[in-house]
Design a binder for these strands. Sequence first.
DNA 1: ATGAAAGCGCTAACAA
DNA 2: TTGTTAGCGCTTTCAT
Lengths: 385, 385
Amino acid sequence: MARVKCPICNKTENILKAGLIRNKQRYNCKNCNYHFITDKKKKNKIPFFEKSDKQITMLDIARAAGVSITTVSRALNNRSDINVNTGRKIKELAVTMNYQPNILAQSLVNRTTHTLGVIIPSLETTIFSTMLSGIQEVAATAGYRVIICTSNEKHEREVANIQALMNNMIDGLLICHSIHTSTFEHLRVHMNKRIPIVQFYRVAVGLNVPQILAEDEAGAEAVTDYLIKKGSQKIAMLLGPKELSLTQNRLKGYQNALRKNKIKFDKNLLAHVDFSDESVYTSLDNWLSRFPELDAIISISDKSAAQIITKLKNKKINVPKKIRVVGFGNEFVGEMLDPKLTTFDTQTRHIGEESSRLLIEQIISGKRDIITKVVPGKLIIRDSA
Amino acid sequence: MARVKCPICNKTENILKAGLIRNKQRYNCKNCNYHFITDKKKKNKIPFFEKSDKQITMLDIARAAGVSITTVSRALNNRSDINVNTGRKIKELAVTMNYQPNILAQSLVNRTTHTLGVIIPSLETTIFSTMLSGIQEVAATAGYRVIICTSNEKHEREVANIQALMNNMIDGLLICHSIHTSTFEHLRVHMNKRIPIVQFYRVAVGLNVPQILAEDEAGAEAVTDYLIKKGSQKIAMLLGPKELSLTQNRLKGYQNALRKNKIKFDKNLLAHVDFSDESVYTSLDNWLSRFPELDAIISISDKSAAQIITKLKNKKINVPKKIRVVGFGNEFVGEMLDPKLTTFDTQTRHIGEESSRLLIEQIISGKRDIITKVVPGKLIIRDSA
DNA sequence: ATGAAAGCGCTAACAA
DNA sequence: TTGTTAGCGCTTTCAT
């Protein structure tokens, strides 16, 4: 074996191997107790990408510029305490060498990742992907990345996702709860941490976490009111699971309108569905058989409204003459239906945008005000009611 | 000022302050030239979250267990070279102390983030959010996070997003090009790097990057063939921008079917739209005025098919009697239309799943096979054709 | 204006 | 089986 020479004492005796660090052989000179390193010849063949894959680091720039790594850092971060020429030279060098900062290293040291986490029940439901679009747009503009996790309406996945994200990956969390989430311990444990949280659309009530909400109560009231004005008396309502604040708020709005118009509330006109097609159809059949005088249906979403209208047409029940149908959400599908769908526009995209905005504001300001904001919507009157 | 004692020589003279490191005061003993540290009393008031926000590190566990940090690492990573009892004790301790690993630090050292980047034109188009759903589902199952970036169909944003993601944040990239992307240098520069790339749905042809495609050519051929069998002769086709491979492939399929059935190709029956509502309506009006004998329209998406059907109904043109309409994508809206939409199901979700699967496979295996995979679709026959 | 060195929290090679 | 040490790539403090 070729002898290695200690760069300090220049001897070749008593040099021990002392570890292999990132492909470099490290040695220890027992004479002067000095550790040093030489390149190690590669054993295994070079992977195909290795040759072009050498990431330029600040050290490379420092060497090329003949300055210290600190100076490079200062130059690239546009610090004031640096010679203008040195700074310019380093920045030019960084460009020509195609330097790309290692974001992981920056994040580790700065304790900030410029990344938001979003937990959302599903991506295939129009309102959720629309909200996500709003979130991502605002985030991108503010220079934040977005990591998405879908809970698929499963509580366990919501819990697991939160845990995974909160481990230093994100600067803030946006969450829209799954329908099966009724305990909130998994959120509570993170509430007093550095990382701010904002709930949106489906929120846990009584939790000290800011919320961005749709205009559920006022919206449902406006819709019900409108139907009554149009002459409906027997108004059924398709709702989500009882536990959701959203459900409760819409129900409240509905009841407000009934009370105002002196119509007796009948809880059999309520149906709680789990968003499956089947549960929607079952509820509809149920109503039709129990309430021949049914003259209006308020649906939980435009999608189920579309399903209801289609089903009613199949049964030769005229919409809106016999039964008026109103949706919630103002999705694209509403305009394509025949009759065109009357719906309450919850301004889904805005909800996403506002949530993102509030979260980023809390990240930047460091403030943790417990704000509740309702994004105003509006009734879109078309032909189905 | 209270004097500080050097732990080496035990003197209190000639001790200089030597920096403040992460809230600790560092000193330098000039007698023995030894650097040491003591805790520094906090000056500014504690932020509200600080008390509960002390992240437990491996060092804390090591101290609590009376072992070295390496041993903790070994225990938590379930290494074999560790005493079973020590390992168990450490893992218990980690749980009781509620230890959460710092993913950034792990990623930095392991050079892998378990995160995929996805660049997608939009989130508000059903097919894209559906593909994303498939991507995210497969990724989550394999233990990968997903960062999304929308290009909003803008080339510059696509380029910027790629650059931002490739800086050590991701282990692999999934990309669906924006319609305005016709040069691919921004991709090419990353092709030979460690980070694998997979293109999906809208791909750059002739680029050495794996692709997952919809069955565009065969699908369009099947659709056209079906229309001709049904008796259509004058078949218009709504296409995306000419540059997209997807457009070219569907056009090829259309032409194949015409040729096979000895129908003359007329390029005036083609319209290239930019997915805006307006361009769809303009194309339709154009066709109607120029081709009174028009008897079928193949649309680029179910959404535009829906718009076309709605518009034709407005104009009292019977679908499918006078004009047959076929969509692409099999989105939810198709079933809600009247008449129900005949469409080619591109299996959008599968495309996302397959892309994700291929990318992860390449990440794990380290192989970079240039695979092109077409996800088979099928014709869904309903009432509009 | 610049550099040396410590440290962010973790992993891994070697010594013991 | 365990500890010591260097290092991932960056920022920051203090000294010069």
